[in-house]
Design a protein around this nucleic acid. Structure first.
Lengths: 220, 220
DNA sequence: ATATATTTTTAGCCTATCCTAAAATCGAAA
DNA sequence: TTTCGATTTTAGGATAGGCTAAAAATATAT
């Protein structure tokens, strides 16, 4: 059964909020995510339930079905492939692509996506470092490495810290290295293993090997 | 003022049916073009009139305004740029691109189109040989040449015949060289000036120089 | 355990776009 | 010029998606 653009957007939101289908999701949370009113969400949930892409029990939130998961992953795949296209071929900055990809992801043409995928050389990750599901909906888990183990020029996103003491987090905060920050290794000093890092394509930052060893990066 | 997808489609249809704004267009003709009912067209014409992209006098058909022309040309530009992309970059056949381009043409992002244009190296014609309006809505008139004057490998579309005798047309019909046919010069025989032509990317066709001299081609 | 607060749903309404059936208008022929 | 056929518009209704206000159900706190 065909989904409308609005339905695809709801399903994608539910997929994300449910952490890939692991948790159930509330009406209010969906409304906040989609920037719409809870009443509108209730309406849509009834429809998505009828189409069996979610399991909907009134007042108890929704769970995404296997079919729904497949659909959501299809939309996510399209979104991320378009993001790669925009950044790699059309020179968009990585933070300019989201809105346009939001539109492009609803174009209906399996052939188009197949060809685009090939044209981009079957990328596994989008410009934000998020994995691109393959045509079957399988996603490649992104390897996580300690920042000090990364090579020159490599890029990634800070996803976790090993040392979560207040002191360490306060330090990270001060230098502007938050969870989610996009980083690139600009330099590694042989002598002491300290690094020069580009954060969010804006500011550079020096850190010791010890600090870097406590920062986990999801590579792109 | 923003136009919806439906409004853009109506405007594009009116633009084409009016031969670029030269003639006025009837409700019935629009309905046929859009594959909708005349009653729906009346509705939409009122709206487009309110938005001043057409001039609408009940019962007397519509004329497109300058503003409307500009909008229509913008949509046509996007459509044709996407067609070039699909054919040149994603290896679509020239007759597979229309439906997808119908969807892509409604993506709203001036930056996207600007970048796409540059990426495609500012093409002047789409894969069907139709001219691509520039960002100001100006279109380059396509030169027409006699088929016998074309060079090897050149492509184009048959747009007219010099000799329109029944005999000649019957001959063209027999060999499958109709007005609108997409052709490519595969070979030119030095000795007698006869040609080998690829028609519609499917069948090849041999013709004498005399025949070719009577066929006018719009080059791409 | 009951009262209150929060969440969710329902009811009713709006706009966009489409439809069918009926009414209005136009234009051409007698 | 009157009438008749074709075209066009209007009227009224459907569906998709959104909104507000009010009702209903659930969750929480005393």
């Amino acid at each position: 059964m065909e989904l409308t653009t609005a339905e695809e957007n709801y399903l994608k939101a539910i997929y994300h909020l449910s952490d890939g289908g692991k948790k159930s999701v509330s009406t209010n949370d969906i409304a906040a995510e989609i920037k719409t009113k809870p009443a509108s969400v209730s309406d849509m949930l009834r429809k998505l339930g009828d189409k069996e892409v979610i399991e909907y029990r009134k007042y108890y939130g929704v769970n995404i079905t296997e079919e729904g998961k497949k659909r959501a992953l299809g939309t996510i795949r399209k979104h991320r492939l378009w993001e790669v296209f925009l950044v790699e071929k059309l020179q968009f900055a990585w933070d300019e692509v989201h809105e346009v990809a939001e539109e492009l992801e609803h174009i209906q043409s399996p052939l188009l996506i197949q060809r685009l995928d090939a044209y981009l050389n079957y990328p596994k990750f989008d410009p934000h470092g998020d994995p691109i599901p393959d045509e079957f909906g399988d996603v490649k888990a992104r390897p996580r490495v300690a920042l000090n183990e990364m090579e020159l020029e490599q890029t990634g996103q800070i996803v976790a810290v090993k040392d979560s003491s207040a002191a360490f987090l306060r330090y990270l905060d001060k230098v502007g290295a938050y969870i989610g920050a996009r980083i690139k290794v600009l330099d590694k000093v042989e002598f002491d293993g300290s690094l020069e890092i580009l954060v969010d394509q804006k500011k550079t930052l020096f850190m010791s090997k010890d600090v870097a060893a406590n920062i986990l990066v999801q590579q792109s």
